[in-house]
Every structure is written in C-alpha cells, then in structure tokens.
Design a protein around this nucleic acid. Structure first.
Length: 701
DNA sequence: TCGTCGGGA
C-alpha cells in the first residue's frame, strides 16, 4: 500500500511515550490508522515477545475485519501471528502475538484470569463510544496497571472531546494526538429549531438534490417509522420533479432490523448519473460506513434506551445527541472528498445545550450482570462499591443491582457472592436467566429452559399479532403455537420446538414471519450455553432427552417453577378486581401485561394471580413484556426473602468509599452540592429534548 | 390494545 498512514509519522513518539508510561491515551481521528497500526508499531518494538498484544473492539465485525487487514499487512495467515476472538469463534493459536477481540470477550477472559497475564499490551480501541464493557475494562485497567506495573502497557484510544477526561482518570497520563485523513466538512446550521424535523430533512434533501453537485446524501433519523415515512415522502417528491432537470435518484432505508440483503444494498455503487439518498438510524454513525457520502443531514436526535433503577423500568426515549456524536455524523460526509453537513438546529443549541459526550451506557443500564461479574473476580482489593469507574453509576443503580442479585441467591445477606452466584457469572446471560437454568437443572427440565433462555437472549420478535382472537388475517399465523395459555416464555419454547421438528429449516422461519437471523442466533446461543453448563454442573443433567416436549409435565410446571425462581426479582401480583398488576419488590409499580402477550385469562377473562416478567417497558404506559404464569406457592419463599432484605448489609458498609465514589453517590458533604447541581441537570436535558421532540411530533398530526 | 436506536458475552 503506497499510502503512508498519518500514524506512522508518529511511530517514534508513540514508542517513546509508551516506553516511559504505563498508560497512554491516543486521540486518533478517522483515517489515522490507529486500529491497524498501533498494534504493529508495538509489535515491531518487541512488546509481543513478552506477551500477546490485545486490541479490543466494541463490535464483532470490526475485530474480524481489522485483524484480517493486519494479517495481510504483515504477510501472515489469519489465525497464526495475528488472530481474532469473538463469541462463537476463536481464530488464534499458540503462535498468535497480536490478538483482536471484542471487549466483551476480553471481559470473559478476566473471569478465568483477572490479571490477564498472557498479555503484555492491552489496547482499548474506540473507548469514546463508552460501551458498558469498555467502561468496566477501563476500571479494571486502572487496577491492573498497579498490580502489573513492570510488565503491562495500556493504550486507550478516544475522541478529541473526551481525551483529557480519560487522561485525568489515569492520573494525568500523556495524551497523543494523531491526525486523520478526513476531508474538511462544512457545517451549516439552521437559524431556528425545526418545527418538524421530518419535513425539514425532506426540504433540505430536495434542496441538495436540485442545487448541489453529485454526491450521495446520508440522512439521520431516529427510528424505523420515521425512516419509512421519509423514504416514501422523498420518493414521491422526486418522482414529481421534471424529467432531466436533475440527477436520477435512489432512496435507500438503512436500519438494524432490515434483513441483511437489504442492508448490503448501501454498499453497492450508485448507478451513473444517479444520486443516492440513504435514510438511516445511528447504525450509519459508527457500525456501517457508507462510501460516496458527501452530504449529511443531521436532525440532532437519537433514540436511546434507559433504565430507571428506582422503578426497574426501561424506556426508549428520543434524546438530543452529544457533540461527539454530532462530529461523528458530520465526519461521514468527508471520507472521499470535502463535504457538507446540514445541522437542523442552530449553532447556539450545539454550543449550549448539547452534552460533550452521551450519557455512558453504564449510567443507563441495569447493573445486576455487571456487579455479579465484578464480584466474581473474588479479589480482596475489589470492593464493588469502591470500584473506580470513569463515570460512576448512581447509588440507586448499585443498590438496585444488589437487591436483584440477593433475591435470586447470587449474593448472601452480607453481599458476598455465593456459589450459585459464581456459577451464574460463568454464563453469558442476564442473571435471572442464568438462575433459571440452574433451577431447571435441579427440577429436571434443563432442555426446555435452555431453549427459553436462548430465545429470550436472542431477542426473537414475533411481528404481527399472534393472538388467535378475532379473525386472523394471515392464516399462517395461526400455525404458530400460542403458549397454551401459560404465557410468552412457553410460546417461545413451543416455537423453537416446532422449528426443531422441521430440522431447523430457514424457510419455516420466513413462512412464519420469524427472522431467520435471530432464530439461528438462538440456536448458537443454546449450544454454547449447553457446553458451558455441562462443564460446571455437578450432577447429571436433563439435556439428553432432546427437545421433545415431556409428556410427564404437560402444564410446564417444572419449567414455570424454574422461571419463577430465576425471575424472583421480576414478579407481579394481579390486583383484586381487574387485570392490572403491581410489581413485587423494593418499589411497587402499577403495570399491565403488554398487549402483544399471548397470556390468557380464565373463563371469566381473569388473568392469573401471579406472573413473572422478562422486562418492564414504559412506552405509552408501563408494560410487562414477556410474561409467564406462576403459582402463589412458588412466590411465597421469595416474599419471605424480600422481608429479610437489608440493603445496608448487602452493600457491606459504606465506610471505605473513595472520594470519587462519594461524589457519585451524592453523600460526600463537600461534594453534595456539586452533585446535586450536575446530575439533575443532565437528566433535565434529556427530558426537555424528549419533550420537545414529542411535542413537535404531536403538533404535526 | 402495542409497536423496538445500536452494540456485546
């Protein structure tokens, strides 16, 4: 390759800095070559002689493609000196000196070897994306560099706006800047907030088409619905344009739930004399790179999932993007030549309202799995409430996680990890699903439980209503099983069993409106879980009996009982005179069964007294999604445990908390004011952005 | 009567 990557001009400087410091932050702009070159530079300097050089990536495809590229540049076969490891696939060997892996994979490796002794260098790439896994790794690295001060080097790559913060986290470690190869992108702001950004986007797109020279247009939307609307509006407007007055046009949607063959359409070149409009979610921000884009239209919004630890509920909100995100979007216009980014908001809003970086995932997620993972390291110097996060989660969130783990026996009254908890942490599953599996092992319904857990984990979605009530329009829907009235978990089991009966025929999936991709994924997960559990289960397991429904258990009693134990932290009780429920737990919530559920009432239409739910989601109202009927007798022991729960004991005393943790918890006297001032402000910002969006959407109708 | 952005083990 004739092109000299910018980063190679800095090779000497990088090598010197790494030699003199345990941690180095590298700010590498797009096209700097950081992902492929940093590892090779350190390899050349001999760091791979003492151990393996690990490079983490937030996404599987990136780990595979970047390692392939590096192997090619070094002239070796992939899997020899250069390899990769992702879930379901390990292409490394005893020869491997440079290893690319997903951050989730490296985190798994920490379970068996918390000090990661096989590695001499760990490079956390794309740390500015602040994925949950990257954030945990950042905390672990801070601890590791003290433990392995003499033989470990850590490099962290980040974005311009976040580099100083990461450096401060690592006691002011050096920050190196490596320029990228992006072309300049002119940013054009709107004079005022759009009253309707769908129409503003449409108008801007047409303006570009009529007035600007050739080049594809990338339009960022918040979701599938908006994308579909935008695509049809744009197609209609373009059809009405006078023939020959401008270029031809091709409008392509792009989002995650699109089947793969539709997604790859954006990678083929535009036909001659034709401009492409790609209408995309934030999948086009980082995950997929579309070549040929010269114009970007940025509404300034993104859809984000957040978890509220006080209610245990998720919501999917439209929120304002951060400045880091806005820059990332704009950068998509400058990959092949100078471009333009049309921001549908005034620059004052960008300057004054946008956050520097998005609220990190660790502050938007349920932390039960994370806390269990950290507790399983069983290292004396890790007190979980002491754990040093770059952005610490709230006290409420940590307490919520502890309560959940306690109710499903993963930790004891004093917050210590139990043998059960240790076993659970071995499984790549949410804690409740892991707990379900171990209970199923005891009760003898492991095969069924594996299926339920795998299908839930793969997030199989049944689109279209599968309720058999009323006249069903498409008759093939009636062929899908309905859970026999017990609920959605049982339905998932039955669906998978039906698929098994036709030898996993992909056509069966598409005939029944099931995504082939996610069904295959659940099959892979099931197999992997089986292998792991076979290693750790002590007694004999009930998995040999295959997938056939067990005639001895026609009411799925064992399976439902296992689910009740596993979901001990996700129980609900029906109210006396109607079909509403209240959740059982720390703070009870009024909720309803999601209308898409197949759960059935009795002859009088009365729903079951007790159910477990997979998830609480607050959309138009608070709903339980994926519910399963359970019995009061199974619920009672959990209620007793709930009475006994003492959060002060679970959190093991707060006396030794660190300064930064105190600030996060908001109970440090000196910092309380500061905390109160900062955190609610962030929350308000999200709320106002969401409200504005909703008001605007509603106003349009 | 409901509709789901994007990643990952």
């Amino acid at each position: 390759m004739g092109l000299v990557l910018p980063i190679l001009e800095f090779e000497e400087k990088i090598a010197e800095t790494v030699e003199a410091n345990p941690v180095v932050v590298v700010i590498g702009e797009t096209g700097s070559g950081k992902s492929t070159q940093l590892s090779q530079i350190l390899h050349r300097r001999g760091y791979s002689r003492k151990g393996i050089i690990a490079v983490t990536q937030p996404r599987r495809v990136a780990a595979v493609s970047v390692s392939r590229r590096v192997a090619q540049e070094l002239g070796v076969s992939l899997g020899d000196e250069v390899g990769y490891a992702i879930r379901f696939e390990d292409r490394t060997s005893h020869k491997t000196r440079i290893k690319y892996l997903t951050d989730g994979c490296l985190l798994r490796e920490c379970l068996s070897n918390p000090e990661l002794n096989q590695y001499s260098v760990i490079i956390l790439d794309e740390a500015h994306e602040r994925s949950l896994n990257t954030d945990i790794l950042l905390g672990l690295m801070k601890r590791l560099i003290n433990l392995r001060a003499s033989d470990l080097k850590v490099l962290i790559t980040s974005a311009t706006l976040d580099g100083v913060k990461v450096s401060r986290f690592f006691s002011g470690c050096p920050v190196l800047n490596v320029p990228g190869t992006l072309f300049p992108v002119e940013k054009l702001y709107s004079r005022e907030r759009p009253t309707n950004f769908l129409e503003s986007s449409l108008k801007t797109a047409l303006d570009i088409h009529l007035k600007e020279p050739p080049g594809d247009v990338l339009i960022f939307m918040t979701g599938k619905d908006d994308i579909d609307k935008m695509v049809s509006m744009l197609e209609e407007k373009i059809q009405n344009l006078e023939e020959g007055s401008c270029l031809d046009a091709l409008v392509l949607p792009l989002h995650g739930s699109l089947p793969p063959e539709m997604q790859v359409r954006v990678f083929s070149q535009a036909p001659p004399n034709c401009r492409r409009f790609i209408v995309a979610t934030n999948i086009a921000e980082t995950s997929l790179t579309v070549d040929g884009v010269v114009y970007v239209i940025d509404s300034g919004y993104v859809k984000q999932r957040q978890y509220n630890p006080l209610t245990g509920m998720y919501s999917l909100d439209v929120v304002q993007i951060s400045r880091v995100q806005a820059e990332q979007r704009a950068g998509r216009a400058g990959r092949t030549r100078p471009g333009k980014c049309y921001r549908l908001y005034p620059s004052s809003i960008y300057q004054e309202e946008f956050l520097d970086a998005s609220v990190p995932e660790i502050q938007r997620s349920s932390l039960a799995a994370t806390i269990l993972h950290l507790k399983s390291f069983n290292i004396q110097d890790i007190n979980i409430l002491n754990f040093d996060f770059l952005d610490p989660p709230s006290r409420e969130s940590l307490e919520d996680a502890l309560r959940q783990l306690y109710l499903i026996d993963a930790i004891d009254d004093d917050g210590q990890i139990t043998n059960m908890g240790r076993a659970m942490s071995e499984l790549p599953l949410e804690p409740s699903l892991a707990r379900t599996l171990f209970e199923a092992n005891e009760l003898g319904c492991m095969s069924q439980a594996l299926t339920v857990v795998a299908t839930l984990s793969a997030e199989i979605t049944l689109h279209g209503s599968t309720t058999k009530k009323k006249e069903v329009k498409r008759k093939r829907q009636s062929e899908l099983p309905d859970g026999s009235g017990w609920g959605d978990h049982i339905q998932l089991l039955q669906i998978y069993e039906s698929w098994d009966q036709v030898n996993y025929d992909p056509r069966w999936c598409s005939d029944n409106d099931l995504q082939v991709r996610s069904m295959m994924f659940s099959k892979d997960i099931r197999k992997q879980l089986y292998q792991i559990i076979q290693k750790i289960a002590k007694g004999p397991m009930d998995v040999q009996s295959g997938l056939k429904q067990r005639k001895s258990d026609p009411d799925y009693r064992k399976l439902r009982r296992s689910l009740c134990v596993g979901y001990g932290n996700q129980l609900a009780e029906r109210m006396l005179h109607h079909n509403g429920y209240h959740t059982i737990g720390y703070r009870s919530q009024l909720v309803q069964v999601h209308p898409s559920s197949v759960l059935e009432g009795d002859d009088a239409g009365q729903l079951p007294d007790y159910v477990v739910y997979h998830e609480l989601i607050n959309t138009s109202r608070p709903f339980m999604r994926n519910v399963c009927t359970v019995e009061m007798a199974w619920v009672s022991p959990i209620l007793k445990k709930l009475e006994k729960l003492d959060i002060n004991r679970l959190s093991g005393g707060w006396s030794s908390i660190t300064k930064s943790q105190e600030i996060a918890l908001g109970n440090a006297h000196t910092s309380k004011g500061e905390m109160d001032a900062i955190k609610p402000d962030v929350d308000n910002k999200i709320q106002t952005a969401r409200e504005r969006y909703l008001a605007r959407k509603g106003g349009k109708k």
